[in-house]
Design a protein around this nucleic acid. Sequence first.
DNA 1: GTAGCAGTTGCAGTG
DNA 2: CCACTGCAACTGCTA
Length: 609
Amino acid sequence: VRELVLIDGNFCTCFIGVIRILKRTLTDSPSIDSLNDVSTSITKINKKSKLFLLREAPQTLYPKLFKAWKVTHLVFEKDTDAYARDRDAAVIKAAKEVGVEVIVKSGRTLWDSDELVKNNGGNPTMTITQVQTAGPKIGPVPRPIAAPKSIPDPGELELDFEQEQPDSKPDFNSGPRRHDDKSYEKISGPNGDFAVPSLEELGMQPATTKHRGGESLALKALSKIIADRKYTATFEKPKTAPTDFEPQATTLLSPHLHFGSLSIREFYWKVQDTIASYKGKASEPPVSLLGQLYFRDMYFGAQAVGGWYYAQTINNPHCRFIPFSLPAKINPDTKLITGEFQSTDSQAEEWFFRWKYGLTGFPWIDALMRQLRFEGWIHHLGRHAVACFLTRGGCFIHWERGAEVFEEWLIDHEVASNVGNWQWLSCTAFYSMYYRIYSPIAFGLKWDPEGKFVKKFVPELKNLDKKYIYEPWKAPKGDLKKAGVSFLTTDQTLDQVQRFNEGLSNPTAEDSKQYPRPIFDFPERRAFCLDAMKKAYHVNLYGNDPKVLDGSWKELFEQKEVGKPDKGKVTADDNEAAERGDGNAGGKRKRGMEKGQGTLDGMVKRSKK
DNA sequence: GTAGCAGTTGCAGTG
DNA sequence: CCACTGCAACTGCTA
């Protein structure tokens, strides 16, 4: 983990932001754009000023900086991410010790996530309804505040202390880095001017994404959206095509919300005012534009309670335990995930890496994963498709593995939304209709029967007849020959995966006409997953269950196996579980436990019948 | 306390 | 092209 700290001004006000350069690879130029844009904006207000950037972690930097620059006030935005809470607590403590006044403002979400939780009975917000009830209790979303008209001069910028470099491990950027990271050689940057670093300076190759960052662009994009009143007022997420590109069907403003280059209040009120003045019938949450923001607040509210455990299954009381392949390794002392996964299933591992690099042999899935890797953004429904495919609707691989890939590549990545959506799609939290499974063939076909999206991102298949574009393995030899397409062997496919994993090969495979065969028979895997999900729902364990923690969950699943063929029995169990009334105390959820196994902690508060 | 309904966006088949 | 159903079936919310 490396951090860059942004500082401006040092008299009575001090504008401070923190940017994490974390697990960023091929896609990240919006972060750099955002920094440059805010710096330019500051200079426009005061020619002597700009964004002053120091290269050191805030936990170690601030205590020294407070003294060196005689800081009187520290102002920053509240951040409820688990890491950020720890970091900010350390910084606040250091500030208090030297008498620096700390002002924390909330503005990352519509409502302060801790307040939202308070107004939801102290519980994590797990449904959109809860957000829509709890939010307004806090009050209306505040109107955005205009940018300052003046900013004081920066003053002296002398640094009378040594730089402390962060740990070099773990180094998430070692893969895509092309030469040494020069950004940490000097605390005020290579030229001593506190400048924003370039990707080159960080040792990274040029970003492949076409998406750019910065407030100027964000406001322009927002104006354009608002100008289309009908689009803004009648937006319905499920009716937007995940296959649309240039232009995409949704707003593409999420990266700006992530980087802070667009105020969520600005967005909320611009949309709200447009709806208010719209003559026709406007759409409503959850499908409307504002509905999307409510979901974001929902995930932030859930994270605000869960802390570090929100982002993993183990020790998470709100995450259903499902025995997916490739679960995380756990530190037994902290019960936190270590960043590595258990590598005991070689087939699952092969499937995982082929999924990651867009080589599953299912063109719809591969196209989406390549769009993710090179552009850092995919449509929400596209994310659904690949997430369902990796987890409960295909590979049966752990959602944490998918979330890690999204964290690495998405330019709009936020822990709360990313983790929450992976839990949603894997039916481990927020959502439970696991029998609704996306087809890697039918879903793309529904939106894009011509296969334009696939042909754009899987150019190997660009000459293939649309009839086979979602199922090239079904194409007759003649059609394949005409399109110049041939199939990679498994070994060749794995070589390709290896090259991509090392960041070596030209990612677009522009000149290749070779494409993998599908990793598995989808209908077969669909049936397998349905069955496995059903079983896991009946066993009904959550991440904080002692049996999950100590590994004895395995026995429950084996016993389940024995009773499985008798369908009537399962139904009877269901009924009994429902009758039992579910001792649902203190957030410990143990619903529908299997008969004869009801000895787990906290579950046996049977309501008297 | 409970029954019935609805749920951000499934799919395949029918009319 | 749309609306509806059956598939086999989960859970929060509301009345």
